[in-house]
């Protein structure tokens, strides 16, 4: 009798142990090895996209609740590639504090929220930055009357800067490195800083270049203020995805690369139909009349053509949201194709 109990007890223990290990393994796998983002997206029939709570030009809602912006268009590009429908996006506005956590916790599947690619963000939150979509960085605004065309001509300036950001440090570093003197006027908030610059209490304003254009728009007298071409720091904005789902990561990455390559190849939303008939090998590979590139991403042959048709190439998205066709009017600068004056460089689709 005792031996019977001993045997059943041991086997029970063993079975229980095996089940416990299996459950633990499944739990860990679920937590750390999610490889089903594309499947889930297809099932939900929408791309779950994290955006900012309201940054004109990048992501903002109008009174009717329609989203628009550079980051918004990127989400639409992913939806176009997957669903052939740029409207299949669920936009989730997130503030700066929660954005990476919500992505980790799978509340969203891609974060398109003008986030700078840094090492700590990739490693601390277990994320991948899919590729730089916008090269931003610190710059300078100064009244046109001062007639400056270079940041190296700012010796002796009084510079307005916001406190508590790397902007202050970058400013000091830059002036010291270039043997220029300056006087800092430090402000905790944007509004008083802008007022000080407008009233002439400082003769230079420093912030990220994209922000300078937004501030200049606020001032309302674009012709009276120059934003210098110099960019003195690196803020490489990139869409973000979770680690461990390579398929999804590749899909997001190559969506960006498709938009850049399209511009380089001369393909835009207006000539995409003509491009479908092209005999140029590069164009054929892009639009899918040659090769299986789309299928390797888990998409259709015309995955890239869908993006361009429904959303546009990089240049079109840029100009409509932050460039010459928008109130911001930011010149391409760094964000021009590498062969046309900028540093945008996408690996080829081949």
């Amino acid at each position: 009798m005792k031996r019977f109990f001993k045997r059943t007890f041991t086997s029970g223990l063993l079975i229980g142990g095996a089940v416990a290990v299996a459950v633990a393994a499944a739990a860990i796998t679920y937590e750390r090895y999610d490889t089903k983002t594309l499947k889930r997206t297809l099932r939900r029939d929408a791309v779950h996209c994290g955006v900012s709570t309201g940054l004109p030009g990048f992501s903002a809602q109008d009174e009717k609740g329609n989203w628009s912006g550079f980051d918004v268009d990127f989400c639409r590009a992913i939806a176009a590639a997957i669903f052939n429908d740029p409207k299949k996006v669920k936009f989730v506005p997130l503030d700066a504090k929660e954005r990476f956590i919500e992505l980790s916790k799978r509340k969203i599947d891609v974060l398109a929220r003008n986030s700078s690619w840094t090492m700590s963000r990739e490693t601390e939150y277990y994320l991948h930055f899919a590729g730089v979509s916008y090269y931003d960085g610190q710059g300078f605004m100064t009244p046109r009357a001062r007639n400056r065309t270079s940041a190296l001509e700012l010796d002796g300036s009084k510079v307005c800067v916001q406190s508590g950001t790397t902007t202050e440090l970058n400013l000091a570093d830059y002036f010291r490195a270039n043997n220029m003197k300056f006087e800092a006027a430090i402000f905790p908030a944007l509004e008083p800083m802008l007022k000080a610059y407008e009233s002439g209490r400082c003769d230079v304003l420093t912030a990220d270049v994209s922000q300078l254009y937004a501030l200049r728009l606020k001032i309302g007298k674009a012709a009276e203020h120059d934003i210098l071409p110099d960019v003195i720091s690196k803020e490489p904005l990139s869409p973000v995805v979770r680690q461990k789902d390579d398929d999804w990561h590749l899909l997001v990455k190559w969506t960006l690369f498709a938009m850049i390559n399209a511009e380089e190849l001369g393909i835009d939303s207006k000539n995409i139909d003509a491009a479908m008939k092209s005999k140029k090998p590069e164009v054929m590979r892009f639009v899918g009349t040659e090769g299986d590139y789309g299928e390797w991403l888990g998409l259709s042959k015309d995955w890239a053509a869908r993006i361009i048709r429904h959303v546009g190439n990089y240049g079109e998205v840029y100009e409509r949201n932050v460039g010459t066709n928008s109130p911001l009017g930011i010149p391409r600068g760094l964000n021009q194709i590498w062969s046309a004056g900028g540093i945008l460089y996408a690996p080829p689709i081949r």
Partner: peptide, 11 residues
Amino acid sequence: PRWQKTVVFYR
């Protein structure tokens, strides 16, 4: 403004 003469970053 988008067509005015201006200095830009250009590699």
